[in-house]
């Protein structure tokens, strides 16, 4: 496993939905928080959210994209779809979306399709976190992510199938992924950019 990554943006994201103290996290809202994790299941993330009343969706869209891409012959253009998201209850609304570096593995048509697939599950208070980069070498590092603590990510080498890399300028998200706005960004020393997103009007 790689060294954990300290992240003030993660603290900000969680702080909006939970009460954080030095070592604990509590949900005093009186309702079940809905969290979408687009990555594979990470023990740390499950352990972390097991402290609070919540519904955690583990979507593993990385594997789904790899399987869908591999299922088609190279010369057949693929119409991007996200069957896992489409299988969720129509009235579900996510409070937190954890994208990790998934957006870097979508080309522009796929990014637009992901926006359409995700939009029904976004509400005014939805916030999201993602890693992105404009450097393809950084983007191909192939890491999986989890949450170790309320200000700390865990990272390890990805075991899910590898996906193509598409680097995006931050403006691409504004144009092609408009269901969420970038509200904060933070450049990491290794070239990754950590971004916080929130729904319009939140």
């Amino acid at each position: 496993m790689y060294q954990g990554l300290q992240s003030p943006l993660l603290t900000m994201l969680l702080n909006k939905h939970f009460n954080l103290s030095e070592s604990t996290i509590t949900n005093d809202s009186g309702r079940r928080m809905k969290i979408l994790d687009v990555g594979p299941a990470f023990p740390e993330t499950v352990q972390f959210f097991s402290q609070v009343c919540c519904r955690l969706y583990i979507a593993d869209l990385f594997t789904e994209r790899a399987e869908l891409s591999g299922a088609l012959p190279d010369d057949e253009p693929e119409e991007a779809s996200f069957p896992t998201l489409e299988s969720y209850p129509e009235d579900e609304r996510f409070d937190i979306c954890l994208f990790w570096d998934f957006l870097n593995h979508l080309d522009i048509p796929e990014l637009k399709a992901f926006n359409l697939a995700l939009q029904p599950f976004i509400h005014g208070g939805t916030t999201a976190h993602a890693f992105t980069t404009q450097n393809s070498r950084v983007a191909t590092r192939g890491l999986s992510y989890g949450i170790e603590g309320h200000g700390r990510f865990s990272e390890r080498e990805r075991t899910t199938p590898s996906l193509n890399v598409h680097v995006h300028a931050l403006s691409d998200f504004k144009d092609y992924f408009p269901c969420l706005n970038i509200t904060r960004s933070r450049l990491l020393t290794d070239g990754r950019v950590e971004i916080l997103m929130s729904a319009h009007g939140s």
Binding site: R32, P40, A41, F42, P43, V46, Q47, F49, S50, Q51, V52, C53, C54, R55, L56, Y57, I58, A59, D60, T84
Partner: peptide, 20 residues
Amino acid sequence: PRMTLEDGAKFKGSIDMDPD
């Protein structure tokens, strides 16, 4: 109410947890 996922476990779906 309580859920443990060990390292290496494969899971896809949703988990409703409530420590209270």
